[in-house]
Nucleic acid binder design. Sequence first.
DNA 1: ATGGTTGTAAAACAA
Length: 274
Amino acid sequence: MVQVVAVENLFFAQGNNMIVASWNVNSITVRLESVLKWLNIAQPDILCLQETKSVDNKFPALAFQQVGYHSEFIGQPSYNGVAILSKLPLTDVEKHFEPEEVPSQKRFIKADYQGSTIINTYIPNGQALGSEKFSYKIDFLNTFERYLSAKYKPSQPIIWCGDFNIAPEGIDTFDIAQTDGQIMCSEQERALLERIKSWGFTDTFRQHNKEPGQFSWWDYRVGAFRRNLGYRIDHIWATETLSKTCNQSWIDIEPRKWERPSDHAPVLATFRTI
DNA sequence: ATGGTTGTAAAACAA
């Protein structure tokens, strides 16, 4: 048994794993130094970013190139914006999943990487149940589900990750009683996300971690991080061919402790590639 | 935990 572990560690050391990460950075301009620092530490093969809040001609592609990362991105002024950074080039990049004639918020980017499809979404927050923004969130999820089932098959190797703005279960928040039925924790959001999941995804984090109290987002307000009043709303989901090869998945809360942090922490998963 | 903080961008709005 010890030998088996040793062999796996050897594979790990040889780089026969793909490390995929997802991080809502809440402005790539403000967070650039933190992201560069974290890339150097974590060395992900793929880093999906959300809330870059950068127009494309200001996206720091050169800074990432200088530390060995390709980047594909789609942004807009002030809000939203997503990107995929990668060690090897990305192909078949798409920046819309809705019909082209619909002017969309920049919340989706997809690319292929080494035979796998990487889908990165910044799902709308939804603000409050019953609001217009909540309807937009529900519409977004329904449209995404149609896109997924029309374009892909669950037998394909697909990673869907990003800021989902939904805590899938009660154990994914700091207090079930306080959060159940609220935004990110409503039955409607959870049922819809579960329906999309049932198309063929595994939550790689829950594949490897069963315990409650594991969070990826803490509100800047009310000292939420210090008090660990968090939610697990950032996810890396994989179809079966990939989830079968997923070694581990975790949330790295260290960057949430750094100076001027994002309110989100990065989520990671590793996949055996041989 | 019912206000508070952060980011964008220049006053509200989003989260």
